[in-house]
Structure formats: structure tokens, C-alpha cells
Simulated assay, not measured.
Amino acid sequence: MRPGIALIGALVGMLAGTWLACSGLPALAATTERIVVNRFSGVAIEGFDPVAYFVDGGAEQGTAEFEANLLGAVWRFRNEGNRAEFLAHPEIYGPQFGGYDPVDIARSVTVAGNPRFFVISAQRLYLFSREDNRAAFAANPERFLYEVGKRWPALQDKLSQ
């Protein structure tokens, strides 16, 4: 076998091995948007209606019929009233920290929250990546919000606009 071909084969093998070794790791660094959106559709929080958490008390799917483009994301709503309320007060109804999990932010990492795991605290919506994070936050939101306050500005600067 020629030395040049052997070198190329070795490099390809090394790269494939590195990819396989890393493919099972969570892709924390892959989340680079200021608001958690579907990278293909641009829809925020998996199409759930952010106002419904407050009005209906739970995670309710919005529809394409009632969409709004705001803050670089497409938001979906269950009805025109929810859409209008969100557009009037996105700072109240939008998920805090762009939909990233505040428990993970307190650990200095940005992990997208799951719209099914949520807490409304002090009239603000928080999304969590896991049920344990939701439970920990619900037990002591002040503790986590204190830590998030120290870490979020630096993490947010690393997210693209």
C-alpha cells in the first residue's frame, strides 16, 4: 500500500472515531439562538401558545392560523385574543431566558427548555429541560434566579442574535 493512501485512511479513521465517540454526548453548544426555536421552521417553544400557560393553566398547542413573528421567532397561538395579548406584552407571556432552562443556566450552560415542563412563578413563565429541574426550581425559585442573574448576561452574549 502506498504511504499517502495509508495516511489518508488513518486520518479518516481517526475522524470517524472522534465523531462516534462524541455522537452520544448532549449537544449543549449547538443551541445558539437567543430564543429557543425549531431550526427548520423558526417556530418558538415547539408551537405551544405562551399565553395559554396563563389563561388555560397548561401547555396548549397553538396553530399556524394564529401566528406572529416577533423577536426573531414565529409564535403560535390558540386564538386571536392570545395572539393580541402576547404582542401587547411579550415580556410577560414569553418564556423567561428565551425558553432556556434556568436550572441549567444557573450551572452556566444553555439547554433548551421543554414546553411541557413549566412553572409560572411571580407571573413569569419558565421552561425546563427535565422534570427534576422543574421540581428543584419550584421548591426554591429565588435561589436559582439569583444564580441565573449572575450567569445569564455572559451566556446570553454567547448566543447569536
Rank of each mutant, 00 (worst) to 15 (best):
Ala16Asp: 07
Ile92Gly: 08
Glu60Ile: 13
Ala84Tyr: 02
Ile35Met: 09
Arg76Glu: 04
Ser23Ala: 03
Leu71Thr: 06
Arg76Thr: 05
Thr63His: 02
Met1Arg: 14
Phe118Ile: 00
Ala52Val: 09
Gly58Val: 08
Trp19Tyr: 14
Asn69Met: 00
Met14His: 03
Lys158Trp: 06
Gly149Tyr: 04
Glu85Asn: 09
Leu159Glu: 05
Glu80Ala: 10
Ile105Gln: 01
Arg124Ala: 12
Pro50Ser: 09
Ala73Arg: 01
Arg2Leu: 13
Arg124Thr: 01
Ser41Ala: 09
Cys22Ala: 15
Ala10Lys: 06
Ser129His: 10
Ile8Tyr: 09
Thr32Tyr: 07
Tyr126Lys: 01
His89Lys: 14
Ala135Val: 13
Val36Ser: 14
Asn79Ser: 06
Ala59Ser: 12
Glu65Gln: 07
Gly94Lys: 00
Ile35Lys: 02
Pro95Ala: 10
Arg78Trp: 06
Pro50Gly: 11
Glu147Lys: 01
His89Cys: 05
Leu70Ser: 13
Ala64Thr: 08
Arg34Asp: 14
Phe117Lys: 00
Tyr146Lys: 08
Glu60Asn: 04
Trp152Arg: 04
Asp132His: 02
Asp101Cys: 11
Val119Phe: 01
Ala106Arg: 00
Val51Pro: 00
Val74Ser: 14
Ala59Ile: 13
Trp75His: 00
Ile45Pro: 07
His89Gln: 12
Leu125Lys: 01
Val119Asn: 05
Val37Trp: 08
Glu33Leu: 10
Leu71Ala: 13
Gly24Asn: 08
Ala122Asp: 15
His89Ala: 14
Ala44Cys: 07
Val55Asp: 14
Arg39Glu: 15
Gly47His: 11
Tyr100Asn: 04
Pro153Leu: 05
Ala64Gly: 14
Asn133His: 11
Asn38Thr: 14
Glu46Gln: 15
Gly9Gln: 05
Ala138Gln: 13
Asp132Glu: 11
Ala73His: 05
Ala135Glu: 11
Tyr146Ser: 10
Pro141Lys: 02
Phe40Gln: 11
Lys158Gln: 15
Gly94Arg: 01
Cys22Asn: 12
Arg143Gln: 10
Arg151Met: 03
Pro26Cys: 08
Thr31Gln: 15
Leu70Phe: 10
Asn79Trp: 03
Pro153Ala: 05
Gly99Cys: 12
His89Thr: 06
Met1Thr: 15
Arg134Asp: 00
Ala139Gly: 00
Ser121Lys: 01
Glu60Leu: 12
Glu142Val: 12
Gln123Leu: 12
Met14Phe: 15
Ser41His: 10
Glu60Ala: 08
Pro153Met: 02
Pro115Ile: 14
Val109Glu: 07
Asn82Gln: 08
Phe77Met: 06
Ala135Pro: 04
Phe97Asp: 06
Gly81Phe: 11
Val36Asp: 03
Leu28Trp: 10
Tyr93Gly: 07
Leu20Trp: 15
Ala139Glu: 12
Asn38Leu: 12
Leu25Cys: 01
Glu60Thr: 11
Tyr126His: 12
Phe144Pro: 00
Ala73Phe: 03
Gly149Ala: 00
Leu70Tyr: 13
Ala84Glu: 10
Ala106Asn: 00
Thr32Pro: 02
Ala29His: 06
Arg83Ala: 03
Asp101Trp: 09
Phe128Pro: 08
Ala64Phe: 01
Ala6Tyr: 09
Gly42Tyr: 05
Gly24Leu: 02
Pro102Asn: 00
Asp157Ser: 13
Val148Arg: 04
Ala21His: 14
Val119Glu: 15
Ile120Ser: 03
Val103Phe: 04
Glu91Leu: 12
Arg78Lys: 13
Asp101Gln: 05
Arg107Phe: 02
Val148Thr: 00
